[in-house]
Nucleic acid binder design. Structure first.
Lengths: 418, 418
DNA sequence: TGAGTTAGTTTATGACCTGAACTATATAGC
DNA sequence: GCTATATAGTTCAGGTCATAAACTAACTCA
């Protein structure tokens, strides 16, 4: 029925290669090269040929497919005052876009993102989702997304796919949130596809920390590099591993549970049932409680903590220092296990950076001298909407990796919009 | 000069696909299917066609290549009392083999392993390598390997590749041991290739824990499954991550340093410069010291510890219990990060299993209830020679993945043995 | 001995990339 | 304005490879 979803590659190891695979590979190669050229403007077929190593003949044929599929378009190039026939520019079709969405503990958000990963439109609605039913939240999200879709339609932009980030354990295959302790969800199957019924590539469900990590790959120009650990400090503490520019999600897609690294054998009980997890020390609630600010309403907690820190309240400072010390231990442990040497701080860790980073770095130096250089501790650049943006980027990536889903009629793909 | 080495795939992301790639893919598919059939005997072309999904015509052509390359051979099949023309059996050529080698702290070892991963011949020599120069150890290893090669030649077996495991951080590209603290090596470039000058696939350098982890993938029939963490308890403590049946080695190949997970903020200083690492609690030396057996000569330490445990000496029992408790914390942390739920204990952890596993499991339950089931804590089956065997298996795997290196003349491949 | 059955090969076809020849379109110099 | 030159893109012959169908080979059963 639906085409194979991006990100759910379940090759059963016995798929023979056929000549058509070569086409798919090269289609992806050509499209990726066009996308990569985006910052410096459109690229010609001839440039594409040298960039990819394919012949001009092949490139012409591949580009024809991409053009008819509507993934790229031709644009006139301004004269360059060079000799010879001028080339025709090729760029990602600005009439196509993807939607990145996020459900978090205290807000829902959606973004319209172009195929060159530009944020075209962002909408966000504060909403205390703790304890709300998945259906209620999804209904509100659908409403939010519809405003985005209406605006996209006005601009003549077709939405071809989407991604939805949720702070919990995800099963992509069934579009199910296995557990999201901070939302109070477990085993909720979301109708993510229904949010974007017209999107040919469907809607992919992602873990919030993973999505936020992906947002870092492209948003900062090369600072983080292709290999890093992203720690997302929200109510829970999660990590996203980026290895060679792609997410590492482990066998079942659940890798990255850094919040439950055991750091204090005799510590506090954790929501996971364990004892002394990082989350009991460096989670948002844990810090607020240690700072003596636990009873405040949700939205104002972080700002109150910030002002307490600014005015030098000792409990607040101590709470953040303690969190930083243990976060440092967790990060060097993680870096050693994964073999990376760059960490990116997101969520409240980025917000608290001024007070957090010095003791964090000191702790890392103490427990693993030289492992992570001072200039390899980075702050998230995408900000709070990072997860939604990362989702969108992941959909774009899956398009670049497999453009054939938008080009070929595909098997059993008739009657798409009945 | 030499052909691209297996395991050093550095695709610069811009290699266009050509029709020839299809051939390579299918060659690998066919060979893998022949290898997979090995336990149940030779496989015919017709069976191969249905197993792979390729047509009989393609299989015939692929098999011809594999036959002329000497990777597989035809064997007569005993009559099956079925109707129709009998097929011709195909099996991995028993006239080809690989060599797995290991340099460890107190021994060197080498094994001759068939293409079906059978151990044909094992040699081992005890040797205190602490502080020995790399050149000295390599010279002794070469001598050991030569006895193996002589025997292989006698049996008419050609060695086509090898792997060498070293307990340290490896740079495969340059065949260099970056650091091996327990050997006292750093920055030693080994002439691994020189150990097997006639082997067309060369010699791959591997980390000891990674190699031992690989040994577990195939040696036990499916017990460990395709996803697990292997913890190797040697003088150092290392881990190998197997994800979907393959090693996860991280961006630079250094992933798995579980021995330096930080578990005790105020613990003992570690050889890595840090404080409170797992190795300072559960490393061989740490346990022996805590058991009050630190001054004994190297070879007898573990046996003395075992007898101390058997006679119930409280210091010994306490030392192992303490190591188990912290190992449990490290393992649940690792399992959470990597998203796996199976652990395999190797090295001295397997040797001490009787005393170690109960407190280990208790600790895991305490810190992550339900994460790792009791029947998902397994003991290494390959034993002490595991790393050498795992190396050999990895070479076999790289042959299965890329048989073209043994088949095609290859570019610039003239004058191989001048 | 011949019908039925399974194994493996041959042959025609189509998809695809390549390389070379070719067409198209610009600039530079006269 | 005309011609040489340079670059962009297309067309076409040729080679590799998998596929499907026809064909040959070898064995069993009756």
């Amino acid at each position: 029925m639906s085409e194979p979803q991006p990100g759910s590659e379940t090759r059963s190891q016995s798929i023979p290669g056929s000549v058509g695979d070569v086409r798919r590979t090269n289609l992806a190669l050509a499209l990726t090269s066009i996308a990569r050229a985006a910052p410096s403007g459109p690229i010609t077929r001839a440039q594409l040929a040298t960039a990819t190593g394919l012949t001009k003949a092949s490139i012409s044929s591949l580009v024809l497919d991409l053009l008819t599929g509507g993934v790229v378009r031709e644009v006139a190039l301004e004269p360059r005052a060079e000799r010879g026939r001028p080339g025709v520019g090729l760029e990602m079709n600005p009439g196509r876009a993807v939607v990145g969405m996020e459900i978090n503990v205290d807000y829902i958000a959606a973004e319209l993102v172009s195929l060159t990963r530009e944020r075209l439109l962002c909408v966000k609605r504060f909403r205390d989702n703790r304890g709300s039913s998945a259906a209620d939240v999804m209904a509100d999200l659908a409403e939010l997304v519809n405003t985005l879709l209406a605006e996209a339609a006005d601009r003549g932009i077709a939405v071809i796919g989407g991604g939805l980030a949720v702070p919990g354990l995800i099963d992509q295959a069934t579009s199910t949130v296995l557990t999201a302790p901070n939302l109070g969800w477990s085993g909720e199957t979301l109708d993510a596809r229904g949010l974007l019924p017209e999107a040919r590539l469907g809607v992919t469900l992602l873990n919030e920390a993973n999505a936020a990590a992906l947002a870092e790959v492209r948003s900062r120009t090369g600072t983080a590099g292709p290999d890093f650990v992203f720690v997302s400090g929200e109510v829970g503490v999660g990590a996203g591993f980026v290895i060679a520019g792609s997410l590492f999600v482990g066998p079942a897609g659940h890798a990255g549970e850094i919040g439950h690294l055991v750091l204090e054998p005799e510590g506090l009980p954790c929501s996971c049932g364990g004892i002394g997890c990082l989350e009991t020390i460096a989670g948002q609630d844990a810090i607020l409680r240690a700072a003596g600010l636990a009873d405040d309403p949700l939205e104002t907690d972080m700002s109150r903590l910030l002002s307490a820190l600014s005015s030098g309240e000792s409990m607040a400072v101590a709470a953040v220092q303690r969190a930083a010390t243990f976060l440092g231990m967790a990060l060097v442990s993680t870096a050693r296990l994964m073999g990376v040497s760059t960490v990116v701080l997101g969520g409240h860790f980025a917000v608290l950076a001024h007070w957090l980073v010095p003791p964090l770095f000191e702790s890392m130096q103490r427990h693993a001298p030289g492992l992570i250089r001072a200039d390899r501790v980075l702050l998230s650049s995408a900000g709070e909407g990072g997860a939604a943006f990362g989702c969108a980027g992941s959909v774009v990536q899956s398009l670049l990796d497999a453009p054939q889903f938008l080009i070929r009629p595909g098997p059993a793909d008739v009657a798409e919009h009945p």
